[in-house]
Design a protein around this nucleic acid. Structure first.
Length: 304
DNA sequence: AAGGTGTGCAACCGCGCATTC
DNA sequence: AGAATGCGCGGTTGCACACCT
């Protein structure tokens, strides 16, 4: 059986919205809320498809939407997130308050993507186009090492963002423990330091915190999730985490579900030992490092 | 000034997932 | 359990405007 169309399309208006239509939709949603979008057009007196109304509301009429030029900070955020998440515009948009996924998508396609190409970067992989080959890693030059690191970092950060998005969804429905996790997630940096840097206490603190938070919020049972805890060689260097090392290596274990409550227990104990200063130092270290690398990218002289 | 081309963006479309019945 | 329905997402299209020749 074929899919039923979202609405009876005959006689429905398409194309750009008029100010009058906008007003009708705005008035209706303000008074009654949108409820079931399918029923909105009839109730609001619009000859539009419900889906079209929903889109117009989300991308244009909803209060608090910011339009117009993207700031340098927003630029950076989009590039960073895209490098980690790919075209998952809704998740990216969740990290840019007041911007819609559609607007970010358009901005990417019309602006950032072209800029990256001009700079010799592949907008999909974010690697230089020259090195974007299937050449195996570890052939003996430094670039391959860096690429491995970047990819590893990307995996971590992507996982964090996914967990964060999940956390904020849960916050909306009012889960107390998720509020705490969401709060932590929004504040902490996530990845172990890059190999080019010496292992600092700050980074390890951050690294540990990330592992803790993941373990306390992530649903390991989800087969759809891209989030998994890789083996963390650095963890064993840190006294407070020694007990959890074996738990973190549960990634490849099929008994993950049974272990999750045990993980939680250990992790919660560790979280309570964290100092505010540790958090702040770690956050700063992470943000500075990431911002600078993006800044450098754009400050590189190009032959435009 | 007129026609052609490029660009940006709003809106549409189809699909997949979640929920309801 | 599975069909029906609704919603959200990402890809794509098409129009309006700007710029170029």
């Amino acid at each position: 059986m074929g899919r039923v169309p979202c609405c009876e399309k005959v006689g429905l208006k398409k194309g750009p919205w008029t100010p009058d239509e906008d007003k009708k939709l705005l008035d209706y949603v303000r008074k009654h809320g949108h409820g079931n979008w399918r029923s909105v057009p009839a109730k609001a007196g619009l000859e539009r498809c419900g889906k079209s109304c929903r889109l117009r509301w989300i991308n244009y009429l909803k209060p608090g939407i910011k339009r117009g030029n993207f700031s340098a900070e927003e630029d950076r955020t989009i590039i960073q997130l895209h490098a980690l998440l790919g075209n998952r515009w809704s998740i990216i948009a969740a990290h840019l308050p007041q911007r819609t996924d559609n607007e970010i998508k358009n901005y990417w396609n019309t602006n950032i993507k072209k800029r990256l190409i001009r700079m010799g970067l592949d907008p999909i992989t974010h690697k230089t186009i020259k090195q974007n080959t299937f050449e195996p890693f570890g052939v003996g030059h430094d670039q391959s090492k860096d690429t491995t690191n970047i990819s590893h970092v990307a995996q971590w950060e992507g996982a964090r963002l996914e967990a964060e998005a999940r956390g904020s969804q849960l916050q909306v429905i009012g889960s107390g423990s998720s509020q705490l996790s969401g709060l932590i997630l929004s504040k902490i940096p996530t990845q172990p330091c890059l190999s080019s840097h010496s292992v600092s206490t700050e980074h390890n603190t951050a690294y540990n915190m990330y592992a803790l938070v993941l373990a306390t919020t992530h649903d390991f049972r989800s087969s759809m999730s891209t989030l998994s805890i890789p083996t963390l060689p650095a963890v064993s260097n840190i006294p407070q985490m020694k007990n959890t090392e074996s738990l973190l290596s549960y990634k490849g274990d099929n008994n993950v579900m049974g272990a999750s409550s045990q993980i939680k227990k250990v992790m919660e104990g560790c979280v309570s030992n964290l100092q505010d200063d540790d958090i702040m130092v770690a956050v700063e270290a992470f943000r500075t490092e990431r911002s600078e690398s993006i800044e450098e990218l754009f400050n590189e002289p190009t032959s435009l």
